[in-house]
């Protein structure tokens, strides 16, 4: 399920079946061209990836809107805010709150998070063939599906 009015109606009817929420985490900045563009590309890939993951598991998973933060943000502060999201989700109740991101810096604070953090190795976009990128996203999706299943 996605966070759309249509899917929320379905969710409302079937809450007991949808016990997992997935939150993509994406850094962003608008500054020096190269790092900014890289963040923007990764944001796109993360969005695509999250959508594919949702497509595979939509009957049990809600995909939350992407949580964005400034690249240089203090992660411990962000973690506090994410924990507020997590407790909000758990009220529903969602049993599993899963965060997915290409940003490796979350790994350092993963223990402070009330949800589970899944780190994805980033996919290089620049100058790659779209078909190759698609294939990589597909592969990563299937691997992550397995990982999500292991939480069930």
């Amino acid at each position: 399920m996605k966070w759309t009015s249509m899917d929320l109606q379905k969710y409302d009817q079937a809450k007991e079946y949808i016990d997992t929420i997935i939150v993509p985490l994406a850094p962003f900045q608008i500054g020096a061209l190269e790092p900014s563009a890289k963040n923007a590309d990764q944001f796109d890939v993360l969005t695509l990836f999250a959508r594919e993951l949702e497509q595979e598991l939509m009957g049990r998973v809600m995909l939350a809107p992407t949580y964005t933060y400034i690249t240089t943000a203090e992660k411990s502060q962000e973690a506090e805010r994410m924990n507020e999201w997590t407790s909000h989700f758990k009220e529903q109740p969602f049993k599993q709150v899963l965060y997915i991101s290409f940003d490796p810096s979350w790994r350092k604070v993963a223990n402070d998070l009330d949800g589970e953090f899944i780190w994805l190795p980033s996919i290089p976009l620049k100058d790659s063939d779209p078909a190759v990128v698609k294939g990589m996203i597909r592969e990563q999706t299937m691997q992550t599906v397995e990982l999500v299943k292991s939480f069930w």
């Binding site: 079937a14 079946y17 949808i18 595979e56 009957g59 049990r60 069930w152």
Partner: peptide
């Protein structure tokens, strides 16, 4: 697409149920 809530099913997706399509969600 699973007719329950739409997850993707796999042929023999679960070792306990050979010769069947299996939906991992429920």
């Amino acid at each position: 697409v699973c007719k329950h809530l739409g997850c993707v099913v796999s042929w023999e997706g679960n070792d306990d149920y050979p010769e069947q399509y299996y939906c991992p969600c429920h």
